[in-house]
Design a protein around this nucleic acid. Structure first.
Lengths: 119, 119
DNA sequence: AAGCGTTATTTTTTTCAAAATATAACGCTT
DNA sequence: AAGCGTTATATTTTGAAAAAAATAACGCTT
């Protein structure tokens, strides 16, 4: 057994289910950067519909909306994220960093342990 | 936003992909306890075929087999897990315990943080 | 030799999620 | 009024995974 690694995934959950994970955070960041749900979805190889449903779900679960949209107008419309969303993104990023340190630490220990048990 | 919790999932990975996670560990434990792939699968609401494929995949990825099977015989056949599998189960259980402590610690901190940022 | 409960394997069917397609509305620009 | 790029929504199609079903083999017991 070579190159055994500890991997994992992390998300925030409310009583209504998953609230914020890697996919939603990336979507929010791409909406922030591009100003468009459509562009963000295309960048991620995701259908507009799915992205829009993720936005709906987040807006519903958070007390305050995470994404504000506008239909029509100068550039056809657009979307931007709220300060609340930015706050959660910052928190999630720090949390993920601590998690990656946990995983790296456990991965560093693992080879020793497996050798000890003799497989 | 009430009752926000940090949740996650954890597994071991080799260059060939996922090797050991919660589902496989539970399957191994139930095979050990029941002496049968079939019974273990039924207990987990899983088809025999899927359980058998998981066993095949584990046996292939680990250098040494994790499950030994016998067809025919006194009770029609059966399966048991090897000491190597038992060693990995013990390691994974300890790892999961440390992970749950990480999650609990982060969940305890989270409410404070969210309040601070004013949502 | 017939029966049993299991492992082992293939084939078929079903289910469900994802993708694709289509349509409408919106508000600006020209 | 026509065109644009977007949001918003419903409908259809596709595909892949899961489930179900069917078959065979195995080695013991009776």
């Amino acid at each position: 057994m070579e190159a055994l690694e500890v991997k994992g995934s992390l998300w925030l959950e409310t009583e209504a289910g998953r609230f914020l994970g890697p996919g939603r955070v990336e979507l929010l960041q791409r909406i922030e950067q591009s100003g468009s749900i459509n562009k963000a979805a295309n960048q991620m190889g995701m259908s507009y519909k799915k992205a829009w449903e993720m936005v709906q779900s987040m807006n519903a679960q958070a007390g305050t909306p995470f994404v504000l949209t506008q239909t029509g107008g100068e550039k056809g419309g657009g979307a931007k994220i709220t300060p609340a969303a930015q706050g959660y993104i910052a928190y999630y990023t720090e949390l993920r960093h601590r998690f990656q340190e946990f995983l790296a630490h456990e991965s560093a220990k693992i080879s020793k342990i497996i050798v000890e048990q003799g497989t």
